[in-house]
């Protein structure tokens, strides 16, 4: 009696999991399918699965002007730079915040939370003006500065939660042993925060890889475009005549690095976000 009940429960759950996977992956799998079909096969609908398979969409996209990998390279450069900047600024700040109590912590912590929630799209116009005045437009290095700034609130909050979780005696013992602040960070604290630093870095990378409005307004030279504005430019060119196979190939290519990162660091991301939620 209870055996069949349990079996039925397990069956129901499997069905739900299948639905969940279909919902999450279906659209992406459809992109993958589309990207491998010839234009004719797509327009003729579901006419036969036997023929019409092709890699032409990929070769088209990769041999465009500029080739698609150029956008991905730009996005990677900006992502790496902004991750580096963010961590370099956020780690000392988070450390100081975690070691302080009282009003300062409350004020800075509250400000950071508000900034982390803030829809940054509101800021693009003023940031564009800064870029124009300082001549920072069309410069990938400069673009990573606002990215670092926008990522800082969440990064500091996540890292300071991780600092606060380390037993304070570890650092105190290092202090008594004559370690300087830099040595304590280098040898004791940061090695113990590996997962938190990795997940924070990954979130920053994701953000800058995906960021749209600022990249859209700061970058105009097509060989400097990052992935998001490049996609929008493709989309904006024309709605109905655009070859969707090439579209799909682009979306697959643009998603692959993130898929790889997500699979590599799945544990850290989940742990990092979970921790952030609990502390936040």
């Amino acid at each position: 009696m209870s055996g069949t009940h349990r079996q039925r429960m397990a069956l129901g759950r499997s069905a739900l999991v299948a639905l969940l996977l279909l919902w999450s992956l279906g659209p992406m799998l459809w992109q993958l399918y589309t990207s491998l079909r010839s234009a004719d096969a797509l327009l003729l609908g579901s006419a036969g699965l036997g023929g019409g398979w092709t890699l032409a969409n990929y070769t088209d996209v990769l041999s465009g002007d500029p080739p698609f990998w150029r956008y991905m390279l730009n996005s990677t450069v900006v992502g790496a730079l902004s991750t580096l900047f963010t961590l370099a600024l956020a780690i000392p700040c988070a450390y100081a915040l975690s070691r302080r109590g009282g009003l300062l912590r409350l004020l800075v912590g509250g400000g950071l939370l508000a900034a982390a929630v803030f829809p940054y799209v509101l800021l693009f116009l003023a940031l564009l003006e800064v870029a124009r005045q300082l001549g920072l437009a069309n410069n990938l290095l400069a673009l990573s500065l606002p990215y670092a700034g926008l990522s800082l609130p969440l990064a500091v909050l996540l890292l300071q939660a991780a600092f606060a979780e380390l037993p304070v005696e570890l650092e105190e013992n290092a202090l008594l042993e004559g370690f300087s602040l830099l040595q304590r960070l280098r040898w004791i604290l940061l090695p113990l925060m590996g997962p938190a630093v990795a997940s924070t870095g990954l979130l920053v990378f994701l953000f800058s890889w995906n960021e749209f409005p600022i990249a859209l307004t700061w970058l105009s030279r097509s060989e400097l475009l990052t992935l998001a504005p490049a996609m929008a430019r493709i989309a904006g060119s024309s709605v109905f005549t655009v070859p969707y196979g090439a579209f799909a190939a682009a979306t697959v290519l643009g998603s692959l690095p993130l898929l790889a990162l997500l699979l590599l660091f799945q544990r850290q991301i989940v742990a990092g976000l979970t921790q952030g939620a609990i502390k936040g």
């Binding site: 995906n210 504005p229 996609m231 929008a232 493709i234 898929l259």
Partner: peptide
């Protein structure tokens, strides 16, 4: 299931 969240909005919007 996290994948949709990780992908660029612009990429999937096109999709």
């Amino acid at each position: 299931t996290l994948l949709p969240w990780a992908l660029p909005t612009t990429v999937m919007a096109l999709g």
